[in-house]
Amino acid sequence: MSCPIYDESPDLLMDFAAGKLDWESKQRMDVHVSKCAICHEALAAQAMVWKALDEWDAAPVSMDFDAKLYARIETQHATVWGNLKSLLLPATTWFRWQPAIGMAGVGALFLAVFLLRTPAPAVHGDGVRMESHEIEQAELALDDVEMVDKLFAESKGEAQSL
C-alpha cells in the first residue's frame, strides 16, 4: 500500500501539521487524510512530534549579553586603533608618554589622513609609501573608532537611564 502524497509530497503533511497550508489546500488534505490510512497515521504522528517540540522552551538571554558584546567590539577597536597607529606612525610609540607631544601627534594623524584622501599615493615623512588598500584600511579604521565611541556613549547613557 502506498500514497502518492506521502511518497512524493511529504511537505504537504508537514505544512498541514504545522498549520501552514492555505484554506484550499487544507480542505483538500482534510478530504485526503480522511480516506488515506498512511497519511492519517503520519499526520497523527507528526502532530504528536509538533506538540512534543512545543514543550521545549528556550531560556531567557543573560542580562549582560549586550555589555559583553560591546566590550568585545571595544577590544576589537582597540586593536584596530593600535594597528592604525603602527601603520601611520611606526616610529612614534614614545609620544603616548608625552601629553603635549601626544596632542601634536593627533594633529599629525589628522594631517596624515587628510593627505591620504588625495587620489595619488601619499609619501610620508618616514618615506613609507602608502598603497591604496592601506589608505582604505586607515580610513575604515578611523570610521570604526568614531563609531565605537558613539556606540559606547549610547550604551552608557542607556545604562544610566535604567
Binding site: 528556550a58 543573560s62 549579553f65 563609531m147 549610547e154
Partner: peptide, 29 residues
Amino acid sequence: DGDTESFTLLLNKHRGPVIHFLYRMVQNQ
C-alpha cells in the same frame, strides 16, 4: 554608514531568535 543606533536596533530584534536557535542546536545556554 556608521549609524550605531541601527546596530543596537538589529541586536535588540535578533538577539533572542539567534540565541534560541543556537541553544537548541548546541543545547547549552
